[in-house]
């Protein structure tokens, strides 16, 4: 009886398999280490991707327009979440890939904006605050959890990811779209902030904003842009889900060098 109790006390059952408590404890420590490493790696890698692709559209308040910022940002942001979602869902049944990515990105961009843009380069936060896409990531994860399907997550989650971006950021942005008069010209507060705080090598004409004829859709550029972005997000999500699949395969290469070096003619073991 006491042996049974001892056996019971020294083991735990995790998801249907018996584990010694020691092994379970080591596994938990491993979890913690990996979580920290993934978070830091994701913050660095995703932030780098974000800087290189979305770049100025997110750096500056006078680039966050109704057309390109709304369209491009979700499309370029959904890539890492899609790939990580595949890995964490297929290998661990964890519907947290998108949220992990977005939380790590949030940490990365705020570190960059604080130290790089604000402290080092003197830009005020009113010019360089980052957008947030956590809302879309939460929905993406929750849809994956509820559907358990990459395809349905792409269709519903991807579309939601694109659609939620603009309204999710409007509370942050609206204060910078108040109209004002500067030098007898009508500008928004955000335009004026961008004008006032000199970016020596980023002149006004570099802003890629509000170009084209999308505004002819009844003036609702943001709505059209958000739907278009959502549609492209579906396709990009599927592509990156597949890339996550490919990248998470464990592949070995036959060691032909061994036989060339005369170390035996046994067939290589993968």
């Amino acid at each position: 009886m006491s042996a049974q109790i001892q056996e019971k006390n020294s083991h735990v059952t995790l998801y249907g398999r018996r584990w010694s408590k020691e092994n379970a404890s080591i596994s938990r420590t491993f979890d913690k280490l990996v979580v920290v490493i993934i978070f830091i790696a994701m913050a660095a890698a995703f932030h780098l991707h974000f800087q290189l692709t979305v770049g100025d559209w997110d750096f500056w308040v006078d680039w966050k327009d109704r057309q390109y910022w709304v369209t491009a940002t979700p499309i370029l942001l959904i890539v890492f979440p899609a790939a990580l979602q595949f890995v964490l869902w297929e290998k661990f049944r964890l519907p947290i890939g998108a949220t992990v990515c977005m939380l790590a990105l949030t940490a990365g961009v705020w570190i960059s904006r604080y130290f790089g843009f604000h402290t080092w380069s003197y830009f005020p936060f009113s010019l360089v605050f980052p957008a947030t896409a956590i809302a879309g990531a939460l929905v993406l994860d929750a849809v994956l959890l509820l559907t358990g399907s990459g395809l349905l997550t792409a269709v519903f989650g991807g579309m939601a990811f694109g659609l939620l971006f603009y309204p999710g950021n409007w509370p942050l942005l609206a204060a910078y779209r108040l109209p004002m008069e500067a030098m007898n010209s009508l500008v928004s507060v955000g335009d004026y902030i961008g004008y006032a705080y000199t970016r020596t090598s980023t002149p006004e004409y570099l802003r890629f904003i509000e170009r084209g004829t999308l505004r002819t859709f009844g003036g609702h550029s943001a709505v059209v842009s958000a739907f278009f972005s959502g549609f492209v997000c579906i396709l990009v999500y599927l592509l990156w889900w597949y890339i996550g699949q490919v990248m998470s395969r464990v592949v070995t290469v036959p060691n032909r060098m061994k036989s060339l070096m005369g170390l035996g003619d046994r067939p290589d073991t993968p």
Binding site: R17, D31, K91
Partner: peptide, 27 residues
């Protein structure tokens, strides 16, 4: 939004995560 994300992640990471879950899928 960070609090929302943290709540969501906490819901999942409070349980054994990687090796036990992967083992369960294999089982």
């Amino acid at each position: 939004w960070v609090v929302m994300a943290a709540l969501w992640l906490t819901w999942w990471v409070r349980r054994p995560l990687l090796i036990p879950r992967h083992a369960a899928i294999n089982d």
